[in-house]
């Protein structure tokens, strides 16, 4: 595994932040001139206050819905690698239309969604990536509807590369990031990134929770190249989804 890291210590992410771990793993293998496009998200903060930056890459902040459009314009202007780094709010919800449009145009950009399953930067309110039954400040009785299947939606765009990844499987994650940069056209990578603050979970359990999500089959590690789907990791030990949910204070307790 490539251990060079571009994420500096001292960034202001919460303890055990899955989004910071995701960036640490992913940023180590992107080209050094990669433009990182960050819409409103936890990462708007994690990057650090002016004049500091926690990330040793060129970064541009954008309004919430507009990351896909900025990235498109940047890539159209220059032949440089461009990576959107967006949360689930920007991806599944407010920037969804523009994401779909950029995918339909098959823009030559890498779109990464670090999915922490709610609007964690504003206090954990429900997004359409929030799983059913999760209690959030805007779903105090638990969310009534299912998590949106963003991978199925992106698959319907017939883009050249789609993958899911987990911070608990860093080699797999890095391989997929590298693959995305090597492919011409639109790539979409969904990284499961637990948020101990929002999930009401011990900060030390982030990687464990991520691993249990994969091992229980709730979050599948897949890769879809030109429509051909394959599992990149088959769960080796059976974990009951209940055990995964039990780690999370946001999920209802079994009676």
């Amino acid at each position: 595994m490539d251990l060079r890291t571009r994420l500096e210590p001292g960034h202001p992410a919460c303890a055990g932040c899955g989004a910071a771990i995701a960036m640490k793993i992913a940023s180590a293998v992107v080209p050094s001139n990669t433009r990182v496009v960050i819409p409103a998200s936890c990462w708007s903060i994690i990057l650090g206050k002016y004049p500091f930056s926690s990330l040793k890459l060129p970064v541009i902040h954008t309004p919430f819905a507009l990351a896909s459009a900025f990235a498109t314009g940047m890539r159209a202007a220059k032949s440089v690698p461009v990576m959107v780094w967006a949360g689930d709010g920007a991806t599944y919800d407010i920037g969804f239309g523009l994401l779909s449009a950029a995918a339909e145009r098959n823009e030559d950009i890498v779109y990464v969604c670090y999915d922490n399953e709610a609007y964690m930067n504003t206090g954990g309110q429900k997004s359409s990536a929030t799983p059913k039954a999760a209690k959030t400040p805007t779903t105090p009785q638990g969310k009534e509807t299912e998590k949106k299947d963003i991978i199925a939606i992106m698959k319907a765009h017939k883009i050249p590369y789609i993958a899911t990844a987990s911070i608990a499987f860093p080699e797999d994650l890095q391989r997929k990031i590298k693959k995305a940069f090597s492919i011409k056209g639109f790539s979409f990578i969904l990284i499961h990134s637990p948020c101990p603050t929002g999930w009401k979970m011990e900060p030390s359990l982030t990687v464990k929770a991520s691993r249990m999500a994969v091992e229980s089959g709730i979050f599948k590690l897949v890769e879809i190249k030109h429509g051909q789907e394959r599992e990149t990791y088959k769960p080796t030990c059976y974990v009951n989804p209940r055990e995964y949910y039990k780690l999370q204070g946001r999920m209802p307790r079994d009676e």
Binding site: L66, S68, A69, F70, A71, T72, G73, A76, A77, L98
Partner: peptide, 11 residues
């Protein structure tokens, strides 16, 4: 929204 974001990114 895309139109204005794209010109912004290019500039």
């Amino acid at each position: 929204l895309s139109s204005i974001g794209i010109v912004a990114g290019a500039v």
